[in-house]
Amino acid sequence: MDLDHDPGFVQLLTPDGRRVSHPDFGYAGDDSSIAAHLRAMVLARRLDAEATALQRKGELGLWPPMLGQEAAQVGSVAAVGSRDEVIPSYREHAVALGMGVTPLEILKTFRGTHMVDWDSRALRFHLYSFVIGTQALHATGIAMALQLDGRVGPDDATNAAAMVYFGDGATSQGDVSEAFVFAASYNAPLVLFCQNNQWAISVPIERQTKIPLYQRARGFGIPSVRVDGNDVLAVQAVTSWALDRARRGEGPTFIEAFTYRMGAHTTSDDPTKYRGRDEEASWRAKDPIARVRAYLRSTGAIDDLWEGHLTNESDALAEQLRDDVVSLPDPALADWFTRVYAKTPSGLIRQRDAHEAYEASFEETA
């Protein structure tokens, strides 16, 4: 499908759980696939809630909640192919789970015991990016490399694309605009997936742009779509289309997933200082999990027994996570001196030796 027009706001599942049609996009899965999406969203939300609680108890240094953005992440990662590369920011916890990262691997970084600890090469899920917007340029380079390696085109056996995640606040950063320029100029096989959760920390979207975000990317010559980011079906449909066209060599696509951050920007943030309860209440009525549950209940695809099993699975996940996080070994600072360079400079070796001698002096006096 080629889009030679603005498809408008793409929605396939309404907030009250009704399936609706769209002239350009449709969801190809059945109710069992939708139930799998519900399970993924519920488990991701439980991980998010447990991580927030662990931070409040002092077991994590920081946590960026994803509450409310589950559909945008679960729907988009469901479209990723077996050879595609995914480049996240720092809030893509449901995407990480969908790409095979374990819950504990996600939390290690936020506890401060490890750097980003998963095998990004094997999983094709790259490291969390904590500097706003830089990952868009990294992803553009990865997409261009796929293109130069001949992995873009009609051969379904070898073709691949890249997808990068960022928020609405990142679109105000120069790195993202530069990524638009290079992706468009080189026709890179890249999906630019923006989760517009309405707030760049305390700055509302209205202060960041005078036009809808998806129209901004069009100014760079990039086809762009705005999708209901709380509708997992629509998100998967639009992302599948965008990744397919990227793999075929038709270039980049910008997706604006229109969603809402129901929680804080991070656990160091207090959103009550800058937004009202009415706004939050209006978005909670569009909860991405509630609408899927309502639909599946209406079709009889899930029942109390099914949900009971999911509750038990969520509880087990939370219990295991609580035990595993507090059992993580404390890192040895001396180990980190040799993890910066391929060949550690002599100056860092001297600093490491001095640190080890300093630590040993306390053992001698004890």
Score class of each variant (00 low, 15 high):
Val326Thr: 12
Ser172Cys: 08
Asp149Met: 10
Thr259Phe: 00
Pro204Asn: 07
Cys194Ser: 07
Phe193Lys: 08
Ala145Asp: 13
Val101Glu: 07
Val80Glu: 13
Phe362Glu: 03
Lys273His: 06
Pro204Gln: 15
Asp4Phe: 09
Tyr90Phe: 11
Asn312Pro: 11
Glu178Thr: 01
Ser268Lys: 08
Pro223Thr: 02
Gly169Glu: 10
Asp2Gly: 12
Arg218Gly: 09
Ser32Gln: 13
Tyr165Gln: 09
Val164Thr: 04
Asp30Lys: 03
Tyr274Lys: 02
Phe193His: 13
Ala285Trp: 01
Asp6Lys: 15
Ile201Ser: 11
Thr209Cys: 13
Val95Arg: 08
Lys210Asp: 13
Ser89Tyr: 11
Gly251Trp: 10
Asn159Gln: 12
Asp287Pro: 00
Thr338Arg: 12
Glu319His: 13
Val74Asp: 00
Gly347Ala: 07
Trp241Val: 10
Trp306Arg: 15
Pro154Arg: 15
Arg83Asp: 14
Arg121Trp: 10
Ala36Asp: 12
Ala237Thr: 02
Thr267Arg: 01
Gly29Ser: 00
Thr52Asn: 13
Phe182Tyr: 12
Thr140Cys: 13
Arg339Thr: 12
Val80Ile: 12
Val225Ile: 12
Asp175Trp: 04
Glu280Val: 14
Glu256Ile: 06
Ala316Phe: 02
Ser89Asn: 13
Asp149Arg: 08
Thr158Lys: 15
Tyr128Met: 14
Val80Pro: 05
Arg46Pro: 09
Asp48Thr: 00
Pro23Tyr: 04
Asp330Pro: 03
Pro23Thr: 05
Gly112Thr: 04
Val340Ala: 07
Ser346Pro: 10
Phe9Lys: 02
Met99Gln: 13
Val235Thr: 05
Ala316Ser: 13
Asp2Ala: 14
Leu43Met: 02
Val74Pro: 01
Asp117Val: 04
Phe193Tyr: 11
Glu178Asp: 04
Ala290His: 03
Leu296Asn: 04
Ser202Pro: 01
Ala334Arg: 08
Gly58Ser: 02
Trp118His: 14
Ala49Asn: 13
Thr272Lys: 09
Asp4Ile: 15
Arg339Cys: 10
Ala136Val: 01
